[in-house]
């Protein structure tokens, strides 16, 4: 198999909520970039529609029984409104889909909890809510990650980028690409309180993959998913280089009540603040190849200092000149 459990050369995507504005644009873009990776779309009431470059069905059951595409469907991309996400997830699980991406933002937490417990019982892989998708340059992509021209950010290489923020997943891949490191996989896991795929879940999946040379993780305040990475590493569960950046230190100095950025999870006892996360990861860094970047752009230096080899030549210099200056 080429790729990872999240996205590989066997991946066949069915889009749930396919004819919506965002979903139909993603299907068209994906078809242009990686023809054939999206196999079908589902929109109740639009079955048989020809508005998309893929067949559209009313129900997933019809799609998986279709003689042409049915057998090829194994990955669902969910684009339905927040209150319909639980229903869409159950439709996928009950029809045998084992890898799901929830792109929808603002899924009710209670529904996320039910989804997570079902996922565990059924042994499925679910990424999100609030995921932007996954990119494996050697294989393809799931979702809108990287936009129309993903070559700006993504080139094949050895770095795995894992981020709660979708936008920063791409921005980080691009920063590395310009300095000589390509991406093996970029995964936007979303910042929901109940996250179906955490950083630690990903590290456990990829730890034996020889193509992984290093990991860049982007964390945010709230919850304990970043702390769990430190625990996993300290227990010997992952020993490849990890460069981390945790945003949100500044929020601890803000007047009380100023909330900004992604509404992360509640700060738990001794966990959840950016400084708590940084301290835990730095503690892991005393024994293992883990480095926390002070500034976001120091992630590049961190990967370099951890000895991760460049995949190609550095295309920029330390001092970037402006395109325009009016001084």
């Amino acid at each position: 198999m080429k790729g990872t459990v999240y996205l590989n050369d066997k991946t066949g995507i069915v889009v749930i909520g396919a004819t919506g504005r965002e979903a139909s644009q993603v299907i068209k873009e994906s078809e242009a970039l990686y023809p054939g990776i999206v196999k079908a779309g589902i929109t109740p009431g639009k079955g048989g529609s020809t508005e998309l470059p893929v067949p559209v069905f009313d129900t997933l059951k019809e799609a998986v029984s279709d003689p042409k595409v049915g057998k090829l469907l194994n990955t669902a991309l969910i684009y339905v409104p927040p209150v319909s996400v639980l229903d869409a997830v159950m439709e996928c699980l009950d029809n045998g889909i084992k890898v799901l991406y929830i792109i929808t933002e603002h899924v009710p937490i209670r529904d996320s909890e039910i989804i997570y417990q079902e996922k565990v019982r059924r042994g499925a892989i679910i990424v999100g809510g609030t995921s932007l998708g996954c990119f494996v340059p050697s294989v393809g992509r799931v979702g809108a990650i990287g936009g129309k021209d993903p070559s700006v950010a993504f080139r094949d290489g050895g770095i795995v980028v894992i981020s709660k923020s979708g936008g920063l997943t791409v921005t980080t891949a691009e920063m590395f690409r310009r300095r000589g490191w390509g991406t093996y996989m970029a995964l936007a896991i979303g910042g929901d309180i109940i996250s179906n795929t955490t950083y630690a879940d990903v590290l456990k999946e990829i730890k034996g993959d020889p193509r992984v040379k290093g990991v860049a993780m982007l964390g945010e305040p709230g919850g304990s998913y970043e702390e769990q990475v430190a625990d996993l590493i300290l227990s010997g569960g992952f020993d490849k280089p990890v460069a981390a950046f945790i945003s949100g230190r500044f929020q601890e100095r803000m007047p009380e009540g100023v909330a900004f950025g992604h509404a992360g999870a509640i700060v738990e006892r001794g966990m959840g603040k950016a400084t708590d996360k940084i301290a835990r990861l730095e503690a892991a860094g005393k024994k293992y190849p883990v480095k926390v970047a002070f500034y976001y752009h120091d992630l590049v230096k961190a990967i370099e200092s951890l000895g991760v080899p460049r995949d190609f030549e550095d295309s920029t210099t330390e001092h970037v000149k402006p395109l325009y200056s009016t001084f």
């Binding site: 981020s163 936008g167 950046f245 945003s247 230190r249 500044f250 950025g261 976001y296």
Partner: peptide
């Protein structure tokens, strides 16, 4: 611009 990008930019400005 952007949730994650805005946060890291503001953060760096303050730092």
């Amino acid at each position: 611009f952007g949730g994650g990008g805005s946060t890291v930019t503001a953060e760096t400005a303050i730092e």
